[in-house]
Design a protein around this nucleic acid. Sequence first.
DNA 1: TAGTTGATCGTCT
DNA 2: GACGATCAACTAA
Length: 206
Amino acid sequence: MAQKLARSSYSRPTLIVARDLLGKYLVRRIGRSFLIGKIVEVEAYRGSIDPASHAYRGRTPRNAVMFGREGHPYVYFTYGMHFCANIVTEDPGKAGAVLLRALEPISGISRMIVNRKKKERKRNPKRTDDRSLTNGPAKICQAFRIGRKENGIDLLGRKIYVTQGESIKHSEIERSQRIGIREGKEKKWRFSLKGNRWVSEGGRKI
DNA sequence: TAGTTGATCGTCT
DNA sequence: GACGATCAACTAA
């Protein structure tokens, strides 16, 4: 098993952490089985200096985890039905976070399919593509069974963590505008792997 | 293939 | 009471 990222990896400036997470492996342990995905798309949210961040208007019960220690997942519920997962960065109080937007499935794929409840596979062949398994922030949470319970647990623990993955060259990284937000749109704080098939749809249009 | 909309509810104003 | 760091199904062409 590859080496888990140390706490200090998450302590660095949010933009650096975001870029650096590309190519790393997100590992989710459920009982005895493991789900593994390579991180191919992320967005940086910079706490109190970023109007698009949930933490911009200060601490609330919902975003408390972001104001806590780095190296913990901030999982939030949105649109009445979806979860999205972030990784908290920088020192406590800074409320930096990196949103996981897309993964490339590496291991445990059949379980991811079950978790995503893909009963439509027969009826709609277009969607049988494995691309739709984890090419969006809410899809990742479904496939990896990340929800309220995982909010704020330690990424240095056993249930969810990040390991060293593939080394990524600077030239392989694409930098663009963030998706699905109004304020702070102009900031190019979204990072993805050029040409990777799992990069989310919203992103590849830009 | 592009554009639109329904689902569905916690959080903050 | 409004809306959201979304997704999937639907419509029109």
